[in-house]
């Protein structure tokens, strides 16, 4: 049935039965990226450990081993504590497992929020340009100029005054981090969109009768996703560290609840005599961040059909 209208068409004919519409090119390309696969596996493992910490942890993370603890952290291996204990005699491995719940949830939800807000603001500003762009970018500048720590101080004071709690809740921390750190993403997306909207394929999409929303999210955003993924993976690391800063200053996740950040922060006083209390949470953060970076690299390449 193949009707070749032009003599000497550019392609050799291929029987129709070899034709099958493929829709999974992304996974095919991702699979070839070894490091990204390793990264994905590591992230999944860490996530599983965090989810099932209740069943996997050798001890209650907040239980103080009053039998063996003498006022200084116990070394790894001492008295069945595989990774030792912290300065309060609590099992370090158990705290790491439960801490992963907090740290990963905070990091992923804050970054997700940041990417969502930043992408929407940046995409609308970049696509429509003109006054819309101007207004949204000035709003972005306002958010960019808010210093995070004083804001948190003020908010903590407000929360403390309006309820009886002395510290911010988990959700509030996510909202504050996500709600103030999106300007970088917005600028990134806007910059991409400013150049993409001038491309002919964008004009083609309009000529075909696409709605603006579809052009923005189906045609332009996929072309702007590479820098977004890089930014997102870097931000995961940033948020984990930021949460630790907040905890250190007393505004983050409050003791006795464990997070990798506050474990790291609290280890500081015993650095000289018990370095493992800092090293293990540090390692956890390092491994997570590395894994996410590789995962992000692989994802970026897999989403780009120009890569083999």
């Amino acid at each position: 049935m193949a009707t070749t209208l032009v003599p000497g068409a550019l392609t050799a004919p291929v029987p129709d039965d070899e034709f099958r519409l493929e829709r999974h090119g992304v996974w095919k390309r991702f699979r070839k990226h070894r490091l990204a696969l390793v990264g994905a596996v590591v992230i999944i493992l860490i996530a599983l450990v965090a989810i099932f910490a209740k069943f996997l942890a050798p001890a209650d993370p907040n239980y103080i081993d009053q039998v063996n603890w003498q006022g200084t952290p116990l070394a790894p291996g001492v008295a069945h504590h595989v990774l030792g204990t912290d300065e309060n005699g609590r099992d370090l491995l158990s705290r790491l497992m439960f801490g992963a719940q907090i740290s990963l949830t905070v990091a992923f939800s804050a970054v997700l929020m940041e990417l969502t807000i930043g992408t929407i603001v940046g995409a609308i500003a970049g696509y429509y340009g003109g006054w819309t762009d101007y207004a949204l970018m000035r709003l972005t500048d306002v958010f960019l100029s808010i210093p995070l720590l004083p804001l948190l101080l003020v908010l903590t004071a407000i929360v403390a005054a309006s309820s009886n709690k002395a510290a911010l809740g988990f959700g509030v921390i996510v909202v504050i981090i996500g709600g103030t750190s999106w300007p970088a993403v917005a600028r990134l997306v806007r910059a991409s969109f400013l150049s993409l909207r001038e491309k002919e394929f964008c004009e083609a999409a309009r000529a075909l009768g696409n709605r603006d929303g579809r052009i923005i999210f189906r045609h332009l955003l996929p072309n702007a996703v590479a820098p977004l993924i890089v930014q997102g993976t870097l931000e995961i690391a940033n948020v984990i560290i930021l949460e630790s800063t907040l905890s250190f200053l007393g505004f983050g996740i409050q003791p006795p609840t464990a997070s990798w950040g506050n474990m790291l922060a609290n280890a500081e006083s015993n650095m000289a005599i018990a370095p493992w209390v800092a090293i293990f949470p540090g390692l956890c953060i390092l491994v997570t961040v590395l894994a996410i970076n590789y995962l992000g690299d692989g994802l970026r390449d897999a989403l780009d059909p120009n890569m083999k």
């Binding site: 090119g25 491309k199 002919e200 394929f201 083609a204 000529a207 009768g209 072309n223 059909p305």
Partner: peptide, 24 residues
Amino acid sequence: LRRLRREMQIIFQDPYASLNPRMS
């Protein structure tokens, strides 16, 4: 206007820029 776009179409000059590189 969107309905009318069905009736009138355009073929572009630059075949490298007029197809979205991310779409099959």
